[in-house]
């Protein structure tokens, strides 16, 4: 062939080598750098995501445990309140019952003593009056001794009738 020229051959080689060097320096170097950076970025983000996931899982576990704890505590508090409440109620009822009994007894005793007082005073008055009446009615017919026996007999009757 008549169009074989070693000059073109050499020029092609030289041009290609120059192109290679220029591209390597000004185009592919930065491009590869950027791609490497992106690779690292993606890797870092994936690592971060994994870390976050693990952390959130840990938090979730902690939250669950805290919730469980709180639930248990609430239950205990309620139980305690229940027992305390019923105990207090019992105490109050007990106290009320004691108070009522005391008041009742007191009232009974008071009534008793009042009654006794009344009876005693009635007795005294009745005896005095009887004596007065009797002495006025029968004056000198009856001696003092018979009179007193009679009065005592009546008083006895009064005592049993009351």
């Amino acid at each position: 062939m008549d169009n074989l020229h070693w000059e073109s051959f050499v020029y092609a080689i030289v041009a290609f080598l120059i192109l290679y060097l220029l591209l390597n320096k000004y185009a592919f170097g930065p491009l590869f750098g950027i791609m490497e950076k992106r690779r690292l970025l993606v890797k870092e983000q994936m690592d971060n995501a994994e870390k976050n996931r693990q952390e959130s899982e840990k938090f979730l576990e902690e939250q669950k445990q805290a919730l469980q704890q709180a639930r248990k505590e609430a239950y205990e508090i309620i139980e305690q309140a229940k027992t305390t409440g019923s105990k207090q109620a019992d105490e109050i009822v007990q106290a009320a019952r004691g108070e009522a009994n005391r008041l009742k007894d007191e009232a009974v005793r008071e009534i008793e003593s009042e009654k006794n007082k009344a009876v005693a005073s009635v007795k005294a008055q009745v005896s005095g009056l009887s004596v007065l009446i009797a002495s006025k009615i029968i004056e000198k017919q009856v001696d003092e001794k018979t009179q007193s026996e009679l009065v005592d007999k009546y008083l006895q009757e009064v005592g049993t009738k009351s």
Partner: peptide, 22 residues
Amino acid sequence: ITVSAIITFVLARLAVRKLSVD
């Protein structure tokens, strides 16, 4: 050869003109 090399270089340079990671 020269034109091809220049076009290739210009293309490559255009492509990497505003490089950005994200």
